[in-house]
Amino acid sequence: MSKLIYVVDEQFNGINTYSDRNGSGTMTSEQIKLSEELKNMFPNYLNSLGIRSPNGTYLALDKNGNGTFKDYMKSSLVESAQKALNEGINLSGLNWVKIENGTVTDIDIDKYNEYVGRMKGTPAFDSLDLSAPENEEFGTTTINAQHFTQFSYKNTLVNNSSIADSTIVKMMNPMYYIGTSGITSARYWRIRYGSVDNNTSLAIPLILATKLQNMGYNVDFAVPWGVGHGGDYDLSDLFAWMDKICQ
């Protein structure tokens, strides 16, 4: 969970307006500055994971956020767009999808990010004013809301704010446990993240799926085309996947 604030601004840095079910807004100059800081922090974290694509390519980013991981993320969108195209969905109105002779050949990531749009201002999840639901998630019986990242705690706007216990924060991040000695993980995983879901970043489920695959687990990962945040849009496929495993 503590790493989520990095990755949102890796994807949506430069998009300074946001919109959610509570309304829309424009980030302040301070938020824009913090967004740049968070973006610059993400490559080091990503590179430290040592994850590899199915063909063995080491997935990494340079200081500008470019590299094999970005290409890998793009490939998941290309695959999703191609599936949609094959199913007869009209993609001609999307200027960030390049199609040649019925084949999706490229995705313009910057235009894609603008199309999807930013949902959360900076920092995502761990709000500087402790107003995010996630801040309450880390509350206690006596404290309503707490920070859960050193970044937001350092930049807090709330006097006498506190930060959640590091052990509890660690428990929210599966990356600390996958492949760890003494930890038993599920053998089968089905991970879906809609192509227009902007609650976090596509990088989050992609990192999780890749780490699991690298550790030898059976992972069914896909990016459903045109789907936003939700989990009940393909129940028949989900049940078929479960039945196949149980046979």
Rank of each mutant, 00 (worst) to 15 (best):
M1E: 06
L4P: 00
I5H: 00
V8Q: 00
V8C: 11
Q11Y: 06
N13C: 13
G14V: 05
Y18W: 15
S19R: 12
T26N: 13
T28Y: 07
Q31V: 07
I32A: 04
L34Q: 05
L38S: 04
M41R: 12
L46K: 01
G50R: 11
R52T: 10
S53R: 04
S53A: 14
T57E: 14
A60Q: 15
K63W: 07
N64G: 15
G65Q: 01
D71G: 03
V78G: 04
A81E: 01
K83E: 13
L85T: 04
N86Y: 08
L91I: 07
L91W: 01
S92W: 09
S92G: 11
V104P: 00
V104N: 00
D106E: 10
D108S: 04
D110H: 11
D110Y: 05
K111S: 13
E114P: 01
Y115Q: 00
G117F: 05
M119W: 09
S127I: 00
L130A: 03
E134D: 15
E136P: 00
E136A: 07
F138R: 04
T142P: 04
H147C: 13
F148A: 10
Q150S: 12
F151W: 09
F151Y: 14
Y153E: 09
N155V: 08
N155R: 08
T156Y: 03
T156Q: 12
N160E: 09
N160H: 06
S161C: 11
S162K: 15
I163V: 11
A164Y: 00
S166Y: 07
T167N: 14
V169S: 12
V169Q: 06
M172D: 07
P174G: 03
I178F: 13
S181K: 12
T184A: 10
A186F: 02
R187P: 10
R190F: 04
I191L: 13
V196I: 15
V196W: 02
N198M: 05
I204Q: 07
I204E: 13
P205Y: 06
A209C: 11
T210G: 06
T210R: 03
V223D: 03
H229T: 05
G231S: 13
G231R: 08
D232Q: 10
L238W: 05
L238R: 06
L238Y: 12
L238K: 11
A240N: 12
A240G: 08
W241T: 10
W241S: 10
W241Y: 15
D243K: 13
I245H: 06
